[in-house]
Design a protein around this nucleic acid. Structure first.
Lengths: 207, 207
DNA sequence: GGAATAGTGTCTGTGAGACACTATTAG
DNA sequence: CTAATAGTGTCTCACAGACACTATTCC
């Protein structure tokens, strides 16, 4: 006797072939003025941190677990990108990879694992493709408002905020246009930052 | 002796637990002036057409196969939405579902399977959630340009085009504003459509 | 002519983008 | 003072939105 549910063809779930399912995460950050991705060494070259899914585990849980155990980082808000399903993408067998994006402050990441996204070394599997999708997704987020992923610790000056946006987007922004586009979504603390020459900048936090 | 690849822990791929993987597709169309989704009967109520993945099959292939065999429709351009991974979403066991959106002209679909997306009956699993995500995705597509999914067969009048956009978006559009927003992306054929009272409308095709 | 449908002229408001200007600090 | 950085005034351009008008057809 069995509790296994059988479908209209009399087949149980496990009568269908089951792929291995992995999660692979592009951890992006801004370091030294440029957008970078965290890569991990593996037997056959660099790769994104990832893991196979555990039994009945949520995908986002697997992402956080893999970041914790493989790179010693507590991830924040994994965002699902898409499934990569090329049957030949992994030479070990039939493996689907669910790609994720997460964003972590550079200070919490190992510096020697950070590579500029515009100048990547060769990666295992289709991980270069995952990085490209993750970068485009993050850039879209940063076009929609001020520092949506919290890469700048508040309170921050307008210049600090703009420099992070420039690093993420990979392009220069006009200071005046940028200011006017974000000011309505910020609140001034009233304090100023004096740390060198020139007029001190006002400090803001997100509204 | 074995050709099976083993990882750093000495485990083969199949030593990791493997979920069942299904695809479920929201087939959307415009019928009778409203946006509708194609539902299929099942033992326990209505559901989206879907299937389990076959061995080494591409997800988009599984989508097209399920539409062919379950509802007798040749799908067009399946677009991947996201993975639904709640471990309790399927009472038969551990099943991941990759949700897809496809769009098909209503004339090629069985009329009695079409349900307005704003007034859905109860659905199996989390399929109501998939429909909501699919509808939002399609609406975003239709906000970006004229009939990106080809629901109107060319050549078409401006009014026919606008009515389809209104049905997809679920809201009325101003005829003049709509015209000016799409005309740069269309080319006039020079022909006109005379089919009733009033000034005949010019016929367009997509640029 | 009148009703119906198609299409345009034009005004308003909004917002991006850019240039030039003013403001406040260190040295 | 000068150099450097922060912030604003203001002009232009493009475009969404809306109202009112003109245009072409059927009856």
């Amino acid at each position: 006797m069995s509790n296994v549910h059988r479908d209209a063809h009399g087949r149980a779930l496990t009568d269908y072939p089951q792929p291995s399912v992995a999660v692979d995460t592009a951890v992006l950050t801004v370091f030294d003025g440029s957008l970078r991705v965290l890569l991990a060494p593996s037997a056959e070259g660099l790769r994104l941190p990832g893991t196979f899914l555990h039994e009945r585990e949520r995908l986002s849980e697997a992402v956080l677990r893999s970041l914790r155990t493989k790179v010693g980082v507590s991830g924040l808000r994994p965002k699902q990108l898409q499934v990569f399903d090329d049957p030949t993408r992994d030479d070990r067998g039939w493996v689907l990879s669910v790609a994720y994006l997460d964003v972590v402050e550079a200070s919490r990441l190992p510096v020697d694992g950070l590579f500029p996204v515009d100048d990547l070394p060769p990666l295992r599997y289709d991980h270069d493709h995952i990085v490209a999708v993750a970068v485009e997704s993050l850039r879209a987020e940063y076009r929609s408002g001020p520092d949506p992923r919290g890469l700048v610790s508040p309170p921050f000056t307008m210049t600090a905020l703009r420099l992070v946006h420039e690093a993420v987007l990979g392009e220069r922004l006009q200071p005046d246009t940028f200011r006017r586009s974000v000011v309505p979504k910020l609140v001034a603390t009233g304090d100023v930052k004096r740390d060198g020459r020139g007029r001190p900048g006002e400090l803001y936090v997100k509204a």
